[in-house]
Design a protein around this nucleic acid. Structure first.
Lengths: 214, 214
DNA sequence: GGTCAGATTGAGGCATGCCTAAATCGTAGT
DNA sequence: ACTACGATTTAGGCATGCCTCAATCTGACC
């Protein structure tokens, strides 16, 4: 298949990420916002990606990945998440500060290095945020999860995943010692109870970033 | 000072590398050949680098680094060599196959990650080829060395450094088990005697790539 | 001192990927 | 049904960094 540039990989990755935890297809507007670029720039790149068979797009409609596009996207996601895992496990990064570094490295490492890191880490199944790491063939395992914002008051569960979209939320949760693996009792959308019995208030959007076991 | 792009860093690094082991300044022609690009492309970039204060250049003359340019160049070289060392020590690469990977990564890792790798490796003084790793302040230690091609027959020494310019030579020497740290007796420019007494023939250009203790 | 080859530079182009500004589309609300 | 208004696309530009081809310079040789 066609080669992909770093810029194109970012588009595919962002489209993929949008539908990974929610089903609605992404629009050009939202994609532009996520990438921090002008909508017209998206139009241009979309034309190329559609011509190369990576996305399906009818004019003025939403964007969806083709099978080929999904393959490329999961490959980039795999890189990103393995790099994050490696930075945290081997080089003293905390899980709230790895994103930007991985963002760059995901376009720079060779397949050879990627697989060496994967082997070195013992083929981890999830990254430090709890996001599943796709296998080299693009497949990935999904554990049933509930968004904290959607959980019934009284729901008790373990943190499976914390979205890395908002660095501020990540920082706040890291400071509070809350991360993948933490046990939580849901009080409501604004606070949770920790195992030590302490009531912990949540930042406004935090409930929309934390996923719990069912 | 001005920021530098990956392309500009490659120019500075290549100019620096040319004078690291031999004193003559580099010409645009040679630089173009080393970078694998057309001479006119060099002219253009040289104009920018000179305007930014990184190189000194009189039209039709050779290219020399300014103090600022040398600083940038050593920073890139430091990155390159620390990455090579890390790939070999941590991830199972052999010293003859790390160059291309480092070539890309040197433009991608953050200062933060670089220093983490440096600390993780225990602040190594030389990379797997025996090239000195400049300190963060740009300084680097130089050990007196003789090029094998210039050594008198009968000269006995330890391999300090093997130039990584030619991958073929690297492969051949790696296969023969010759690398930094190896003891050698110089027979002539075409063969050396190994510690086990065996006479080892050298590929045509190998004598110009191996540096020995004095 | 003249000539010529090779090195260097200049002019004009191309691809990528972004921008702003100006159409155009599509739909929600009246 | 109409009319906005927001979303999308088109048009035209710009920076980077490379190219080819042509012009110009430099130095070595006669």
């Amino acid at each position: 298949m066609k080669p992909t540039t770093p810029a194109a990989e970012d588009y595919l990755k962002t489209i993929y990420a949008h539908t990974e935890w929610q089903p609605a297809p992404i629009t050009p507007r939202v994609l532009a916002t996520r990438l921090g670029i002008a909508p017209s720039s998206v139009t241009e790149m979309v034309k190329k990606l559609a011509a190369d068979g990576f996305i399906a797009h009818v004019p003025y409609g939403p964007l969806t990945l083709t099978a080929a596009g999904r393959m490329r996207a999961t490959a980039v996601v795999r890189r990103h998440r393995l790099i994050e895992t490696w930075l945290v496990r081997e080089l003293g990064y905390t899980w709230d500060e790895v994103h930007d570094e991985a963002e760059v490295l995901e376009h720079a490492i060779s397949d050879r290095l990627l697989e060496a890191i994967d082997a070195h880490l013992g083929h981890p199944a999830a990254d430090p945020h709890g996001d599943p790491i796709p296998a080299a063939d693009g497949s990935s395992v999904r554990v049933p999860a509930v968004l904290l914002a959607d959980a019934a008051p009284g729901h008790a569960g373990t943190v499976l995943r914390v979205s890395d979209r908002d660095p501020g939320i990540l920082r706040a949760l890291a400071d509070a010692g809350i991360g993948p693996g933490s046990r939580l009792d849901v009080v409501d959308a604004h606070s949770v109870r920790l195992p030590d019995g302490e009531l912990h208030p949540l930042a406004p959007d935090a409930a929309g970033a934390i996923w719990l076991t069912r």
